[in-house]
Computed example of a mutant assay.
Amino acid sequence: MKTAISYLTILYLISNYNSKIPNSSNCRPRNFAEIKALFQHNPHRSAPFIMAHRGGPALGFPENCLATFARTLAAVSCPLIEFDVRMSKDSVLVLSHDDALEHGSNGHGLLSQSTWATLKKLKLKDEAGQITPHRMPTFATALKFLAKRSAILIIDNKPGTPLDKVLAAITHAKVAHRSVLICYALKDAEYVYQHKPNLMLALGFNQEVQIAAIEQSSIPKDQLIALTPREIQSPTYYQRIHQLGISCSLGTNGNIDTLPSAQSKMLYLERFKAGADIICTDHPEQVAKIFEQTATKH
């Protein structure tokens, strides 16, 4: 049995490394080795991974919402579903980008000062500020929902949210081999690595000094993803990161995503060409179609 598993893993690594376009068949890694292979920098890919920022909200579909995740999953063949985790006053982990409830729901006050009994009754707002019938999910519910689907989980552990509780939930849901945890500081990433070594981590690579510190870190470089600045950097910047075996993620949410499609199309393509292995966007369906069409022409 051990021989069979090793053989299948080797086949996965080879097929994934040679895959030019991320697709649903290579979006369900079965172990830690496979998710590391999935994110290994591959200069032969003809399309980037598409990260759905806050799940990929749209009119009628709020951010950090299960219905929104389902919509994105139906539109993108291998999405990276990014979502945000915070903790309620009574220590329940829930999905929300902001602590202020007014931002994404019909609630008032701070999430961190509200109990789950209050939070679960709120209705979420879509990107136009319209109240929808959708409710705020718990972190456990979101993990259970995504565990059954072809997607990679990009978990944004918001500042102040206890790492130990988040790691315990990931372990309990048995999704570590399909997850990437965003950390806001190198010391947090090193803490996670010490306590749960078989977990992919994402860190900010915004300045030369940060890259130098990460290079010296004990974290294996093949289990890191670089969150790079929104503006295109010099070729040597991406080369330095790629030489470490690390894939680069570049966000277009809040800037390029707000432009007319005729103008934004070339900017998405330009960023992939510059060195972005992953594009984090509020419009995953639109961006995925751009690269699918480009790949088909070639």
Rank of each mutant, 00 (worst) to 15 (best):
K289R: 15
I219F: 05
T115G: 13
N253A: 15
G245Y: 01
I256D: 07
Q113Y: 05
C27K: 01
V175A: 04
L199C: 08
F61N: 02
E231P: 00
P159C: 00
Q207A: 14
G107N: 03
Q223P: 01
A212P: 06
Q263M: 12
T258M: 13
F69K: 09
F61G: 00
P43W: 12
G60C: 10
S264I: 00
K196W: 09
T68Y: 02
A47F: 07
K289L: 14
T3M: 07
F272C: 06
I10Y: 11
L163I: 14
A75G: 09
T236Y: 12
I35C: 01
F39E: 00
K187N: 15
L80H: 06
E270K: 14
V209F: 15
A274C: 06
K20M: 09
I182W: 06
V94C: 10
S150V: 08
Y12T: 07
G60K: 06
T72S: 11
A128M: 10
I35A: 03
A295N: 11
K289C: 07
Q263T: 14
A128P: 01
N255P: 04
L163N: 06
M136T: 06
T236N: 15
T68D: 06
I152V: 15
T68G: 03
A128N: 11
T9A: 04
I278E: 00
Y238Q: 03
Y7P: 00
L146Q: 01
L259K: 13
V209I: 15
S247L: 02
C65S: 09
F39I: 01
G56P: 08
S217H: 09
Y7L: 12
H103Y: 10
G56Q: 09
S114L: 02
K144D: 12
E208A: 15
N198L: 12
T118R: 12
A4R: 09
P43M: 10
S217M: 12
H41P: 10
L13G: 10
S91G: 04
K148Y: 05
N31A: 05
Q194H: 14
N157G: 00
Y17N: 01
N26L: 08
D188S: 08
